[in-house]
Nucleic acid binder design. Sequence first.
DNA 1: CTACCATCCTGGTTGC
DNA 2: TGCAACCAGGATGGTA
Length: 280
Amino acid sequence: MPELPEVETVVRGLKKSLIGHRIKNILLRRDGLRFPFPRDFSKILQGRRLEDVSRRAKYIIIHLDNDLRWLCHLGMSGSLVIQMKAPHSYQKHDHVIMETEEGAWLIYNDARRFGMMDLVTSENWDNHPLLKNLGPEPLAAGFDATRLSGLLKGKEVSIKAALLDQRLMVGVGNIYASEALFRAGIRPTRRAGSLTKEEVKLLTLSIKEVLKEAIKAGGSSLRNYVQANGELGYFQAKWQVYGKEGQTCPGCICQGQKKGGIKRIEQSGRSSFFCPQKQK
DNA sequence: CTACCATCCTGGTTGC
DNA sequence: TGCAACCAGGATGGTA
């Protein structure tokens, strides 16, 4: 379920509960996820202190006390849940379980196993194959319309596909791409390079807005729960077009019209949702 | 370089 | 209730 806001929510949850903890042991219940786990994964992590947790794109980074970073991606179906008592049994897809000296358990569950974990030294950080080609963070201060405009310039792909391309910019996935384009009034099928200055400006704001609102929705549920899976605060309730084929979008001129309603189309094998009346 | 496609894997939903 | 088809929030690697 994770796009930038969900990953950010998980990161905040981990930070709140696990910083300062020392790893007692790590249990691996299979050889790997998308890739095999690093060699001696458990052995290397045992005894390490968790110094900090941060995010880059949709990657979770757990900073350890020995110049090592534990990199984790949730893929499509991964989740991380913290609990303060030992699990009495494991779920079918609980693949990694970490126990800390302080009495916390972190459980990584991932049915589809598209997620990944790796260990990276700070020396190798900038050259990590999964990180080195990532584009800018949309919520960073320097990310503005000028920046996005430069990224989209001359691009022949659809704006929807461009938003999903993590080499251009990171964090936006299939849901928030549809939502941001809806807010900006831009059709997902438009050529990325064809957007006007004004449209790019609107889109930049829409992306930032929708991501921030989703983080806020996730954060509000975190206060009350120890778990860090981001599910409780999921933005789902506030989706305006994603998964709403055939419905009319809120306050839209398409309401009451015979041909009104949100359309679902397929672009590069993924669903896009949009309102033909509102998005041009 | 760019664009498109298949692919990794399991589970939930839908339709007959 | 059985079973098959289809769909799913990501990202890579190969091909043209």
